[in-house]
């Protein structure tokens, strides 16, 4: 019952926000902005730039809110807008180079349990080049398929796959150095 009530409340606020009610818009913003800023931060290292992108994406959310069909998850819908905004921001900011060498590296990640804090994870992701980072985020974190990533980034599906394997290899190397560093200090 509580969930249903919450859902109805959310629909009401969405309806109000569609009509341009600023309070309802602020409610939606304050509800989702921390999570969405985290999403943007995955793609964009600079927190201020990430926030700018998030604000622009929220603009798009409110402008296109009337197009939101209340069937799927509202958070998922907002998140997609955020991710797309991040991608277009990275594209505009820097010319992303995708190394399309069609070489897939073997995956030999060792499970490292919860040794990594979120900051460590973010640090690792930040170390990736933009091309790798986008594919890795979209595939590993957002759960998109390679053909979806390919159409989102305007690249081949093969390129998406190779980007992912490159990203994984790079992450592995970073994790190894991180481990060594940690071991060294301990």
């Amino acid at each position: 019952m509580k969930v249903i009530n919450l859902h109805q409340k959310e629909n009401q606020t969405i309806q109000l926000a569609v009509e341009g009610n600023r309070q309802a818009q602020q409610k939606i913003y304050s509800q989702f902005s921390p999570k969405m800023l985290s999403v943007c931060r995955q793609y964009i290292k600079d927190i201020h730039q990430a926030e700018d992108v998030m604000i622009t994406a929220f603009m798009k959310v409110f402008v296109n809110l009337k197009n939101f069909e209340q069937k799927g998850s509202f958070e998922g819908w907002i998140r997609r807008i955020m991710v797309n905004e991040c991608i277009s921001f990275i594209r505009v900011q820097k010319k992303v180079k995708y190394l399309d060498d069609e070489v897939y590296f073997e995956e030999n990640f060792n499970p490292i349990e919860s040794q990594f804090s979120v900051e460590n994870i973010q640090f690792l992701i930040d170390g990736l080049p933009d091309g790798y980072k986008m594919v890795f985020n979209l595939y590993a974190i957002e759960g998109y398929k390679h053909h979806e990533i390919a159409s989102m980034l305007g690249i081949n599906e093969g390129t998406s796959k190779s980007q992912l394997s490159h990203a994984r290899k790079m992450l592995q190397q970073q994790i190894n150095t991180f481990k060594k560093h940690n071991n060294g200090t301990e």
Binding site: P34, K35, S38, I121
Partner: peptide
């Protein structure tokens, strides 16, 4: 970990 993360604007 990233899903559970929240950054306050």
């Amino acid at each position: 970990k990233l899903e559970s993360r929240e950054i306050k604007p």
